[in-house]
Design a protein around this nucleic acid. Structure first.
Length: 433
RNA sequence: UCCUCAGUAGCUCAAUGGUGGAGCAACCGGCUGUUAACCGGUAGGUUGUAGGUUCGAGCCCUACCUGAGGAGCCA
């Protein structure tokens, strides 16, 4: 007889058949002559039932001894069972022990504190909630690439080791590059602009690094970002692409990861509302709205975190905040034609207080204007020589944006803190595991 | 860098200034449908560190260390 080695998420196709599942013992319950083994294999969780009268004695004894997280191959018949929260059960006939786990596995099924869980992140990711979050993270990344690939974008990754700060702001991680100072990249944008002039529509996808001592649920010192950049695309078209991308991400997760969303207890109706077009609010309108609601803010101040939370809470979709004062934003942003004190940019704020998930803008394409802006910001023009070249040789209007993966994952999975939205978070106080 | 809070068993938490406990995990035993199973038992401690107040400090005071939440900055 042929042995069916399957994964747990394929069980629905094998009802009534004998199969073998290779995995780990997540939990075990016993009632004397009947034992319940909760097995996980990476694709899902399932309960196996071992009845004393129906298996060899040594198999039943082995069940007694099995420790949490022991690796096993279990063979049995798949049964649909409404008593099981997983929908299916395995009536076990044989168990092959691969490794008996040490009996001091630290992660119990009871409650744990954040500090302890983060110290044990390498084991924490085995639990159902973390499994669901990381699965959805994968779905989000897959959807982003699908959307961009299907819309004519070419993936062109930016360097991670860079000679200087791109935007002249943030603190960077410094490294030694054969005796010269170099830095871990905080954005690949400038390189994407070069790539967009070569390939039209491009994107990069990779890690980015900020050495800022941020200590909030929205910040990581190493996080992942997708950065599309498009030639011949203006500020308004830029926003349309962004909202279509976000809609596509959310719909893909709803379609392909409903089981994981359910595991997390996510309110699906909130995600189902994420359809284009998204509301757009100019900075002027945002300031007015904030003032009307008792916030102390003046035109010209950048929006603070509580301000953004208030604004996003006024909508049940992500909201674009557009046309910020140029002094709040980076040097490369295109001023508005009839109102040069504001720039053609947009931040996309996620609903439910998850903060800014996209920052984007139309870039300056005029040679003289770019030089002027670099001088105004006191940036070393010689460091930007190649970037300035892009304005000398066939410059065209172009736009782009950066979407933060972990914040998007946190929002869609309704996770309190971004550190659970990346496999191994790097924060101010943690570099291990 | 600033503000707030917290450090007690492997984990989650109790303990009026007066002999440091419980649940879970581990170990031993019981139970034929358990869902973080349940029941009985065993073992498990330099109360973050260093000082101070007191007859007596887990508890009060000071400093430091570590962590968490938030601000600023940003995705």
């Amino acid at each position: 007889m042929k042995m069916n080695i399957i994964r747990i998420n394929e069980m629905k196709d094998f009802v009534g058949e004998e199969v073998t599942i290779k995995g780990w013992l997540y939990n075990k319950r016993s009632s004397g002559k009947i034992k319940f083994l909760i097995i996980r294999d990476g694709s899902g969780f399932v309960q196996g039932v071992v009845v004393k009268n129906e298996v060899a004695e040594d198999i039943f004894d082995l069940c007694d001894k099995l420790t949490q997280e022991s690796s096993i191959a279990v063979t049995g018949v798949v049964r649909k069972d409404d008593r099981s929260p997983y929908g299916y059960e395995l009536t076990i006939s044989n168990i092959k022990l691969i490794q008996m786990a040490f009996n001091d596995y630290p992660i119990s099924l009871k409650e744990h504190g954040v500090d302890f869980l983060l110290d044990n992140r390498h084991l924490w990711i085995r639990t159902p909630k973390q499994h669901a979050i990381l699965s959805i993270r994968h779905e989000i990344i897959k959807a982003i690439q699908e959307f961009l690939n299907n819309n004519g974008f070419v993936r062109v990754d930016s360097p991670i080791i860079t000679p200087s700060t791109c935007e002249g702001t943030s603190d960077l991680f410094q490294i030694d590059y054969f005796g010269e100072n170099a830095y871990l990249s905080q954005t690949g944008q400038l390189y994407q602009e070069a790539a967009a002039m070569a390939l039209g529509k491009v994107y990069s996808f990779g890690p980015t690094f900020r050495a800022e001592k941020s200590k909030t649920r929205r910040h990581l010192n190493e996080f992942w970002m997708v950065e599309p950049e498009m030639s011949f695309v203006d500020h308004y078209e830029n926003m349309e692409i962004q909202e279509k991308l976000v809609e596509y991400i959310v719909q893909s997760v709803l379609e392909n990861r409903s089981k994981e969303l359910k595991e997390l207890g996510r309110d699906l109706s909130k995600l189902e509302k994420i359809k284009t077009p998204f509301p757009r609010l100019t900075y002027d309108e945002a300031i007015e709205m904030l003032k009307k609601n008792g916030y102390e803010i003046e035109w010209g101040n950048d929006l603070g975190s509580p301000d953004e939370t208030f604004l996003s809470n006024q909508f049940d979709k992500p909201v674009f905040i557009t046309e910020y004062p140029s002094k709040c934003k980076a040097f490369y942003m295109q001023p508005k034609e009839d109102r040069p004190e504001v720039v053609m940019c947009a931040d996309l704020l996620a609903p439910e207080g998850y903060g800014e998930i996209i920052g984007g803008s139309q870039r300056i394409h005029d040679y003289d204007l770019l030089i002027k802006r670099l001088k105004e910001e006191n940036l070393p023009i010689e460091m930007y020589d190649w970037y300035i070249d892009l304005r000398k040789y066939g410059s065209v209007p172009h736009s782009g944006f950066g979407l933060g993966i972990e914040r998007t994952v946190a929002w869609i999975t309704n996770t309190e803190h971004v550190r659970e939205c990346i496999p191994f978070p790097r924060t101010l106080s943690r570099i291990r595991p």
